[in-house]
């Protein structure tokens, strides 16, 4: 599935495919044409992807074939023992979690799950968690603290669910409590923004010692569409809002919020999901090794300092 700005590439790709079919079916030889087109594809690809802006990145971050949490778990963990329920109300499917053995490291994994098929998407509410999801995540993080397991939190959500029931059961309170309690966790917390970091719904499981971000992921206080509707009074201005909000991994690194960018293949993680998942695994393990050597006190203090530095006022 090609995104709008990838249409020129899609055209060349389909012509190559067509010539290949003809090559197989008939005696005709299109090898030279194919080679020429492949060369054109490479140069066009370079041109298209060197010019992508924040809005194109948003589309890659939301790509239907982008790897999701369950893909990362399947690719990186020899075991995943999923745990269910918040012990208050239910078992939200927008956030999942459990014990996992990630490349020989026993950890607690939590994260948003968007779902691939229509059924999965509906079940996971498109990755928009309710208070039950945030409370389940906190329950699992407290369990990790008890068992002294590092926590790896995967972020990929359009935002916390804006619904009547979610408000009635305390969406605001659930997120606020997580922010408060996560700041005191005595174990390493590694946050990986893999797709969409949607505002309060993202930070609600996103307070870490280290924040990693895929090169085509985005993280924002409000969706570009939402911001455009309010500040531009026009949803169509989402590309302008996306640029103004500074939401890419590069922007967030400059702002001191993201600690390391995990590179994706040209065109996005979905172009080579397996490779991307491996790189994510390597990067997580690198930080796990480092953070596991830190004392509980040091972990808590380092996390506090990381956030208290953001927005620190400097006299000019």
């Amino acid at each position: 599935m090609a995104l709008d700005f990838e249409k020129p590439l899609e055209e060349i790709e389909s012509r190559i495919a067509e010539l290949r079919r003809l090559n197989e079916k008939s005696d005709a030889d299109f090898d030279t044409e194919i080679a020429a087109l492949e060369k054109k594809l490479r140069s066009t690809s370079k041109r298209v992807y060197s010019r992508i802006g924040s809005w194109e990145t948003v589309q890659i971050a939301r790509h239907a074939e982008r790897p999701l949490l369950r893909d990362y778990i399947a690719g990186l963990c020899s075991e995943f023992l999923e745990l269910h329920g918040d012990r208050c109300f239910g078992d939200d499917q927008g956030i999942i979690g459990g014990f996992a053995t990630l490349r020989q490291h026993r950890v607690m994994i939590i994260g948003h799950q968007k779902g691939k098929t229509v059924e999965e998407k509906i079940k996971a509410n498109f990755g928009m968690a309710s208070p039950d999801g945030y409370r389940k995540a906190m329950r699992l993080m407290n369990l990790a603290a008890k068992y002294k397991l590092p926590i790896v939190s995967f972020i990929d959500t359009p935002g916390a669910y804006p619904g009547l029931e979610a408000e009635a059961r305390g969406q605001a309170e659930a997120i606020a409590r997580n922010l408060t309690e996560m700041s005191k966790l005595p174990v390493p917390v590694i946050v990986v923004v893999t797709g969409e970091g949607g505002s309060g719904g993202a930070i609600g499981i996103g307070v870490g010692n280290v924040v990693l971000m895929l090169s085509n992921a985005v993280y924002s206080v409000i969706s570009p569409e939402g911001c455009a509707a309010i500040l531009w009074r026009d949803k169509e201005k989402a590309p302008e809002a996306a640029a103004a909000l500074k939401i890419t991994a590069e922007d967030l690194t400059k702002l001191g919020i993201v600690d390391e960018i995990i590179p994706e293949p040209t065109g996005g993680a979905h172009r080579n999901a397996e490779g991307t998942i491996e790189t994510v695994g390597d990067t997580i393990v690198k930080h796990l090794r480092r953070l596991k050597r830190m004392s509980a006190r040091r972990l808590i203090d380092q996390r506090y300092d990381k956030y208290s530095k953001i927005g620190r006022f400097k006299k000019k």
């Binding site: 997120i175 606020a176 922010l179 408060t180 996560m182 700041s183 505002s199 309060g200 930070i203 996103g206 307070v207 993280y219 924002s220 206080v221 909000l245 500074k246 939401i247 922007d251 967030l252 702002l255 919020i257 996390r303 506090y304 956030y307 208290s308 953001i310 927005g311």
Partner: peptide, 14 residues
Amino acid sequence: EGIVSLMQMAKTCA
């Protein structure tokens, strides 16, 4: 103030 303002939620709660 974009992401900087979002991060204040975590900072103040800490």
